[in-house]
Nucleic acid binder design. Structure first.
Length: 113
DNA sequence: CCACTGACGAGTG
DNA sequence: GCACTCGCCAGTG
């Protein structure tokens, strides 16, 4: 059957591509927004990755907590949300450690597909 | 249509 | 390491 109903029609193909990449990040590793953008075929659109993840609001079965910024830090959301703390706890629970500056040594934990 | 905002990144000083 | 600028693009009013 050449045609199939698209699940989650409320998301664009761009978002689906981003979610697909994030879903491949293995436990114990992290990826940067820019890296996810490139792997999703959207070089230079790192901002869209963050935008797409914010749309999830941590409700979907996607390891959103494994995505950090290029500095290896957990990006703070607006509104003083406490979700950033949950993200750090989840990562530490997976074996990802932070240094004294609250950063993750990317040379050690960055996902290399 | 325009202005502004937002889980970002790379470059510059 | 820090502050600032520009580029990117979807969503909102």
């Amino acid at each position: 059957m050449p045609e199939q109903p698209v699940p989650m029609t409320n998301s664009s193909d761009t978002y689906l591509a981003i979610y697909a990449v994030v879903g491949r990040i293995p436990s114990g590793s992290v990826a940067t927004y820019g890296q996810v953008a490139v792997l999703a075929g959207l070089p230079g659109r790192a901002r869209l990755v963050g935008y797409a993840l914010s749309a999830l609001a941590g409700r979907a079965a996607i390891p959103w907590h494994r995505v950090v910024n290029a500095q290896g830090r957990v990006s703070l959301r607006s509104g003083g949300s406490d979700v950033d703390m949950e993200q750090r706890l989840r990562l530490e629970h997976e074996g990802v450690s932070f240094d004294a500056s609250g950063r993750i040594p990317l040379e050690r934990y960055l996902w290399r597909p």
